[in-house]
Design a protein around this nucleic acid. Structure first.
Length: 494
RNA sequence: GCCGCGUUCGUCUAGGGGUCUAGGACGCCGGCCUCUCACGCCGGUAACACGGGUUCAAAUCCCGUACGCGGUACCA
C-alpha cells in the first residue's frame, strides 16, 4: 500500500508556524517514501471560520514549496477536500455507530451540561466529563424511552450524537515517535460526534476522512495525543484499520511554555507564516529551521534545501520533547540560505522592498550593490535599508564623527578630493590616490579612509571603501566629500 | 485535581551500557584577517533534573520524586 499523508488545517485563522512544521513533516515523509501528500480543509466549525484563511493556508504552503498532490484546488480521486462538502459520509458513519450501539443521541442543552459540571465538580475533579459515570443522569437515548427519543427527533429537538465509550477497557496504540501509549477507557469521555448543527466534530470527521482517503500515516501535533484513543475506538467500532500515528513535539515560546499568539506578541515573535513572508524571510530558511525543530538528520550537516530534506527525512529521528522557538537561529538560517543565492535572485527578492522604500535604480547598479553587501545582510530586504547607495547621506553618525573626524580631516579630504580629479577613477585608482596623499602628508591611510567613509555613507561600517567609491562613481564621491567638509564642523583640537 | 507525554550546554541537538575527561550548531566572549562593519578561520564559555536500584560498568536500562508541556468543549 502506498504511503498517503495529509495536512488538515482548520481555516479558523492564518497558517501558524507550528502548522507549517506539521505540513512540512507530512510533506517530507510523503516525498521520502514516494507517497502522496494531501491537503484537507477541516472546516467543521462554522462559528470560527475566517473568510480568507483557506487562501492564506494555500498561498503560504505554495510560498514554502510544500506542493500537495491533492487538495481543494487540486483534483484527486478522494475529493472533495473540504469537510463541509463531505457531510453525507459523517452522517453515514454516525448512523452505523448508532445502530451498532456504539453511539447514542443526547438532548442536553448547553445550560444542562453546565449545570451538570457545576453540580458534580469537586476539588478532586474540577471538570467532570460526560462519560459512563454521568451519562445515566443526563437526557439521552440511553435514559429516555425509544418513543420519547423518536418524538424529540421527529419534532426537531436539537440533539447531538455521542460516542458510547465502553467501560474499563485498555486502549493502546503505537506512536511512531513515542512508542506504545496506553489509556484506560474510563478516562475517555463520551465525545460528541455530530454537533447539534449537524456538522461532525473533528474526532469523527478525521477518522472518517482518513479512512476514506486511505491515509496511511497520521502525522500531527502532540496536542492530539490525548484524543487519539477516541479515534482508535472509532476505527474499531467502524471496523476500519487505523493508520499509523505520529505525534510531533510542540513548538514552545523562546522562554518555554505555549507559543500562544498573545505571548508571542509580547515577546515580539511572529507566529504566522504570513508575517515571515512579509518580513522577507527566505522560504527555504524557514523550512530548514522548522525541519530542525524536533528533528535532525543524525549527521553534522545543518543547512539543507527542501530537496535535500526530502532525501534524508525520517520519522524515527523526530524528537519527543517540546522545542523552544529561536528567532536567532532562524536568522542564521536565513543568512545561510540568502548567501546561497546568486545576485540576480537576491535582487528579485529585494525588488518589492526597494519599491516600498521608494528607491529607484537600475538593475545593473542594484546588482553591484548586492555584490558588495551580500555577506553583510540577513534579509534581501536589507538592500533597501542602506540608503547611501541611492542618495547622499542626510546626516552623519555622531559617534563615528567623534571617533574618526579629526581637526586635520577636512584638509586631508580636500587634498584627497583634488587627487581624485584625475581622469581615471576606479577602486584601484582611488586607493592609489589615497595612499599617496597619506604618504605625502605623513599620516596613516586610516586617517583618510575613515573620514571619507563617513563623508560618503554617513556611517562607520559597510563594504570596502574603495569598492564603494568605484560603485558610487567619481562625481558622487567628490560631491559627498566636499559637502561633508563644508557641513561637518571641525572638532575642537584637544 | 485527574490523565497523557516529556526532561543532555541559555537554545536546537548527537549519543541508546564501556570508545563520554559528553560531540556539533545558534547565541555569547576572545583572537586572526583588515581601512570599518561583516564574511571566513581559530579558540573559549556552558549540559547528562534529583534520588534509589540493576550491572564489573549507566547520560544510556528500571522505579520513584521534582519540574515542564499537553489534554480534560456541541474548538480544532
Amino acid at each position: 500500500m502506498s504511503v498517503r499523508v495529509r495536512f488538515a488545517p482548520s481555516p479558523t485563522g492564518y497558517l501558524h508556524i507550528g502548522g507549517l512544521r506539521t505540513a512540512l513533516y507530512n510533506y517530507l515523509f510523503a516525498r521520502r517514501n514516494g507517497g502522496s501528500f494531501v491537503l484537507r480543509i477541516e472546516d467543521t466549525d462554522q462559528s470560527r471560520l475566517v473568510a480568507d484563511a483557506e487562501d492564506d493556508i494555500v498561498s503560504a504552503l505554495q510560498w514554502s514549496g510544500l506542493a500537495y498532490d491533492e487538495g481543494p484546488d487540486i483534483e484527486g480521486s478522494f475529493g472533495p477536500y473540504r469537510q463541509s462538502e463531505r457531510s453525507d459520509l459523517y452522517r453515514e458513519a454516525a448512523t452505523r455507530l448508532l445502530k451498532a450501539g456504539h453511539a447514542y443521541y443526547a438532548f442536553d442543552t448547553p445550560e444542562e451540561l453546565e449545570a451538570m459540571r457545576d453540580r458534580l465538580s469537586t476539588d478532586g475533579n474540577p471538570s467532570p466529563s460526560y462519560d459512563m459515570s454521568t451519562r445515566s443522569s443526563m437526557r439521552n437515548s440511553l435514559t429516555l424511552s425509544a418513543v420519547e427519543v423518536d418524538d424529540m427527533i421527529s419534532s426537531g429537538a436539537p440533539h447531538v450524537v455521542r460516542l458510547k465509550v465502553p467501560p474499563s477497557e485498555t486502549v493502546t496504540f503505537t506512536d511512531a515517535v513515542r512508542g506504545n501509549v496506553t489509556f484506560d477507557s474510563s478516562e475517555i469521555d463520551d465525545q460528541v460526534l455530530i454537533k447539534s448543527d449537524g456538522m461532525p466534530t473533528y474526532h469523527l470527521a478525521n477518522v472518517v476522512d482518513d479512512h476514506a482517503m486511505e491515509i496511511t500515516h497520521v502525522i500531527r501535533g502532540e496536542e492530539w495525543l490525548p484524543s487519539t484513543p477516541k479515534h482508535v475506538l472509532l476505527y474499531q467500532f467502524l471496523g476500519w484499520r487505523a493508520p499509523e500515528m505520529a505525534h510531533l513535539p510542540l513548538i514552545l515560546s523562546p522562554t518555554g511554555g505555549k507559543l500562544s499568539k498573545r505571548k508571542a506578541d509580547k515577546q515580539g515573535i511572529m507566529v504566522l507564516v504570513r508575517d515571515y513572508i512579509d518580513a522577507g524571510y527566505e522560504p527555504e530558511a524557514l523550512v530548514n529551521y522548522l525541519a530542525f525543530l524536533g528533528w535532525n538528520p543524525g549527521t553534522e550537516q545543518e543547512v539543507f534545501n527542501l530537496h535535500e530534506l526530502e532525501e534524508v527525512f525520517s520519522l524515527n529521528r523526530v524528537g519527543q520533547s517540546g522545542v523552544q522557538f529561536s528567532p536567532d537561529k532562524l536568522r542564521w538560517y536565513n543568512e545561510q540560505h540568502l548567501r546561497s543565492l546568486d545576485n540576480g535572485k537576491i535582487l528579485m527578492r529585494a525588488k518589492p522592498h526597494l519599491k516600498a522604500s521608494g528607491i529607484q535604480a537600475s538593475d545593473d547598479y542594484l546588482l553591484r550593490v548586492i555584490n558588495l553587501m551580500r555577506d553583510r545582510i540577513t534579509f534581501a530586504a536589507d538592500i533597501a535599508s542602506n540608503r547611501y547607495f541611492f542618495e547622499d547621506p542626510q546626516s552623519f553618525d555622531a559617534k563615528g564623527l567623534q571617533k574618526r573626524w579629526k581637526s586635520e580631516s577636512p584638509q586631508l579630504l580636500r587634498l584627497y578630493a583634488e587627487a581624485l580629479e584625475e581622469p581615471a577613477f576606479d577602486a584601484e585608482a582611488a586607493e592609489g590616490a589615497l595612499r599617496s596623499v597619506a604618504e605625502q602628508h605623513g599620516v596613516g591611510a586610516g586617517q583618510i579612509i575613515h573620514p571619507v567613509r563617513l563623508a560618503l555613507s554617513g556611517v562607520t561600517f559597510g563594504p570596502g571603501l574603495f569598492e564603494l567609491m568605484e560603485l558610487l562613481g567619481k562625481e558622487t564621491c567628490l560631491r559627498r566629500i566636499r559637502a561633508a567638509v563644508e557641513s561637518i564642523p571641525a572638532p575642537s583640537p584637544q
